[in-house]
Nucleic acid binder design. Structure first.
Lengths: 307, 307
DNA sequence: TACTAATAATTGGAATTATCAATTTTATTT
DNA sequence: AAATAAAATTGATAATTCCAATTATTAGTA
C-alpha cells in the first residue's frame, strides 16, 4: 500500500487550519498550485475528496476532518521522533560500556564515574576491569565503547588519545639502603630483588622494558597479582618495586613500612590513554572522557601544590 | 525544525530488520547507494550516527535502535491513517444530512432509512423536512448533503437526478359526480371546487400550472396545510383535489369517504428527484440514494401486479 | 603476505519530480 | 455586467532522486 508524504500531510493540516488553499500555501512557504497538487495527490491516494472548493476558500469534508486529525497527530509524532533520536544521540545518553586495566581502574574510575552520572542522568554506565588485550578485543567486538589502557600498545583498528605521562617511582622497604640514597637513578636497581606483577599485566612488561632488565633466575619468579599485594610484599621486605605515580598519588603506598622515592630523571614508564574502536560513533564521548581525566589530573596537581 | 521523510524512515526500519545496507535496499526496492544516502540524510538531520558500518553488514547504534522503534510506530500510524481516511471516504460513512419536501417525505423516507442504516452501520443519518426552496438553500449552504424534491424546479448550482414520474390522481368525495364519470380528463375539473395546499408548497404550484387554472375567487382561498388535511377536507365534501399517486399508493386516501380516480391520459403533475449541490463530494451517495428509491418503486410495482 | 569475497561509500549522469509564474476558470459580490 | 476572489490548469524550469559503475574497506583464506 502507498502512504502519503509527511509534506502532503502538512499541506493538509495547513489547509484545515486556514480554510484556504492560498493561505495554506503561504503558511507552507509554497505557491498555491503546489499545495493544490499536494492535496490532489492525497485525494487520489485515499480515493476520497478531502475538501470542498468554494469561491470563499475551502471546507474540509468529513474524511478531510478525520485526515487532518490523524495527520496532526502523525506530524507531532514525527517531531517527537526527531527530538528523541537527537537527544538519544547526545553525549552519554543510553548505555556506555567503559573498561580499564587493573593498574589504572582504581585510581581513575571512581572520580569520573561520580562526575559522569551526575552530569548525564540518562547515562547507564557499565564498567569492566580487565587486562589490555582483553579490553582491546572487547572494543573490537563493540562490547566496550571505550577503555583506559596504558601505552605504548600497538592495536590496529584501535584509536588512542594519550592523556598523561605516568612515571615510575621506587617502592622500597622502610630502612632499605635505596630509601635513603640521594640522586636515585635506574642503575641503582641493579642487583636488587625487583618485585613485579604476574605475567600478563602490561605494567610488568613496561617495567621490564624500561629498566632493560632481563627476567630470569629464581627471585624474579615472585609475582604479585595486584598493585596492592605488590606493595604489601615490598613492605614485608621481599624486595623493591616500581609503581606508577598514579597509584602512589592516590594513596596506594601510604604506610610506615614502605618508602616511595622518585628518580632524579623521571623514568616515564608508561602513559595512560583512552582507547576506542576506529570509527566508533562513541569517539566523541571517549574523547570527552579523556578530557575529564585530564581536568581531574590538573585539579590534583593544583591541590598538591597548595598543600 | 526539519522532519524526516517517511521513506527515509522506511529505509531505516529495513536497515534495522536486515542488518545490512544491501539487503535493506533490496527490501525497499532501491539500490544500495540510494538507501545509503537516505540513512546518511537521517544521520545528518539527527546529528547522530544511527548505524555502525562493518565489513559484515551494519549494526544499529543506541540512537538507531530508538529511531527504528519510533519509526516503526510512525509508519504503522501512517498506514492506519490511510486506512481510516479511505474508509471514512467510503459511501455513507459519517454524518449524512438528507432532506425531503413534505409531500414526498412520508412516502419515501421510511423505507430507505431502514435500508441505509442496516447496510451502512457507520452512517449517521439526519433528516430534514422542509419546502423546496429552503432545502435548496440548505444544499447550497452545505447543511444538507442531498434532498428529495419535486420537479420541475430551476436551481442554478444544484444538480438533480430524476427518479420517477408522479402522476396526479383525482380525489373526490364519495358519491361526487366525478367519482363515477368514465374517461376522466382535466377539463372535467372546470367548475369544480378545487382544494389545494397552502401557498409555498410546490405541489400547489404544480397542480395550478398543470391544470392551467387561474387561482382567484373566494373558494380557492381554502388551503390545506398538509396532504392529510387536504384529503380530510375532500372527505368532508368541501371539494375535489389532485393528489400525487405516490401518496395515494402509500395509503394516504384509504377510506370510504374519498374516491380516487385516475385520468384517462395520465396528468404528469410532477417528477420526483434527488438533488445535491453541484460538485459536492457526496454526489455518489446521492445517486446511490436515487437508485435505492428506484428499486423501491420497482418492488412496489411488482408487488401491486402480483396482488 | 597477497588474494578473494562481502559490503558500504562515492561519483556522475539520466530520469523523474517538484515548483513556480502566468493564465484560465468558476463563483460571488457590487 | 464588471469587479473581485479563489482554486485549477499549464508549461517551463529547477531540484531531486535514483541508478550503474566504480572505489574503498574489511575480513577471511590460501
Amino acid at each position: 500500500m502507498n502512504i502519503p508524504t509527511l509534506r502532503q500531510l502538512q499541506f493538509l493540516v495547513a489547509l484545515g487550519e486556514t480554510g484556504s488553499f492560498s493561505r495554506a500555501a503561504e503558511a507552507c512557504h509554497v505557491t498555491q498550485p503546489t499545495l493544490s497538487a499536494g492535496i490532489k495527490e492525497l485525494e487520489d491516494l485515499f480515493g476520497v475528496s478531502l475538501a470542498e472548493r468554494e469561491s470563499r476558500g475551502a471546507t474540509l469534508t468529513h474524511a478531510g476532518e478525520i485526515a487532518v486529525a490523524r495527520a496532526s497527530a502523525l506530524l507531532a509524532d514525527a517531531h517527537a521522533l526527531v527530538q528523541a533520536v537527537t537527544s538519544a544521540g547526545a553525549l552519554f545518553s543510553g548505555p556506555f560500556h567503559l573498561g580499564a586495566i587493573p593498574t589504572i581502574a582504581p585510581f581513575v574510575l571512581p572520580q569520573i564515574v561520580g562526575q559522569l552520572t551526575r552530569r548525564y542522568p540518562d547515562l547507564k554506565l557499565y564498567l569492566t576491569e580487565d587486562r589490555t588485550h582483553r579490553l582491546i578485543d572487547q572494543l573490537r567486538a563493540r562490547t566496550l565503547d571505550a577503555a583506559f589502557i596504558a601505552l605504548p600498545w600497538e592495536a590496529p583498528g584501535i584509536e588512542v588519545m594519550t592523556l598523561f605521562d605516568d612515571e615510575f617511582l621506587l617502592a622500597a622497604p622502610a630502612g632499605h639502603p635505596l630509601s635513603r640514597k640521594n640522586g636515585l637513578s635506574p642503575e641503582d636497581l641493579q642487583g636488587e630483588d625487583l618485585l613485579l606483577l604476574e605475567d600478563g599485566h602490561c605494567l610488568r612488561d613496561h617495567a621490564v622494558s624500561i629498566c632493560r632488565l632481563k627476567t630470569g633466575g629464581g627471585r624474579e619468579q615472585v609475582a604479585a597479582t595486584s598493585l596492592g599485594t605488590l606493595v604489601n610484599m615490598v613492605a614485608g621486605g621481599l624486595g623493591v618495586s616500581l609503581i606508577p605515580r598514579l597509584a602512589a598519588d592516590n594513596g596506594l603506598a601510604l604506610g610506615p613500612d614502605v618508602a616511595i622515592r622518585s628518580f632524579v630523571t623521571p623514568i616515564i614508564g608508561r602513559q595512560v590513554g583512552i582507547a576506542w574502536k576506529s570509527g566508533s560513533p562513541r569517539e566523541a564521548e571517549a574523547r570527552t572522557l579523556g578530557e575529564l581525566v585530564r581536568q581531574q589530573l590538573r585539579a590534583q596537581i593544583n591541590a598538591a601544590s597548595i598543600t
